[in-house]
Simulated scan of single mutants.
Amino acid sequence: MNDPHQTTELADRIIPHYERHGRDWEADRRALRWSDKPWHDRFIAALPKGGTVLDLGCGGGDPVALNMEAGGLRVTGVDASPTLTALCRERMPDQEWIVADMRALSLGRLFDGVLAWDSFFHLKPDDQRRMFAIFADHAAPSAFLMFNTGHAASGLNLTLGAHA
Rank of each mutant, 00 (worst) to 15 (best):
Q95V: 01
F132I: 11
L56Y: 05
R103M: 06
G51K: 11
L73H: 12
D94W: 03
T159D: 03
G22I: 11
K49M: 15
G108Q: 09
L156G: 00
L32Y: 01
T52D: 08
L66Q: 11
W117L: 03
P4C: 11
D62M: 06
I44Y: 09
A27P: 10
G108Y: 11
E69Q: 11
M102C: 01
H40P: 07
M146D: 00
I44D: 04
L54T: 08
N157T: 11
S142T: 03
P93W: 10
T8L: 15
R74I: 10
M102S: 01
K37L: 15
D118L: 06
G22H: 11
H40Y: 13
A133N: 13
A152T: 05
L158E: 12
R30F: 04
L123A: 09
W97Q: 04
A65T: 12
C58D: 02
V78N: 00
L115P: 01
W117M: 05
H5M: 05
A136C: 08
P63F: 07
S81Y: 05
C58T: 12
F147M: 10
A162F: 00
A70R: 15
G113N: 09
L66K: 04
T149G: 13
L73M: 12
D79S: 04
H5Q: 14
F135N: 01
L115Y: 05
R130M: 09
A104R: 08
L66H: 05
G51D: 11
A140D: 02
L73C: 06
L107M: 06
R109Y: 04
L10I: 03
W25K: 05
S35R: 15
G22V: 08
H40M: 15
A45S: 13
S119C: 01
L105E: 06
G22R: 09
L54S: 02
T83Q: 03
D126R: 13
A100K: 02
A46F: 00
R33K: 12
A45F: 02
R130Q: 15
R74F: 08
G61I: 10
W97S: 03
M1K: 09
M146L: 10
H151M: 10
D55Y: 07
A86F: 03
G161E: 03
L110R: 15
E90T: 13
K49E: 15
V75N: 05
D118F: 12
F135Q: 02
R91H: 12
F111K: 03
V75W: 06
G155H: 12
A164D: 13
I14P: 00
E90D: 14
W117G: 00
R74D: 06
G161C: 05
T7L: 15
W117E: 02
C88I: 01
F147C: 03
G59M: 09
H138P: 01
A86I: 01
H163T: 15
G61P: 00
K37R: 14
G108T: 14
L123F: 07
L158S: 08
D101E: 00
L160T: 02
G59K: 07
A27K: 14
H21D: 07
A153G: 04
Y18H: 08
G155M: 13
A136W: 09
G60K: 12
S142Q: 14
R42G: 10
D126G: 10
E26G: 07
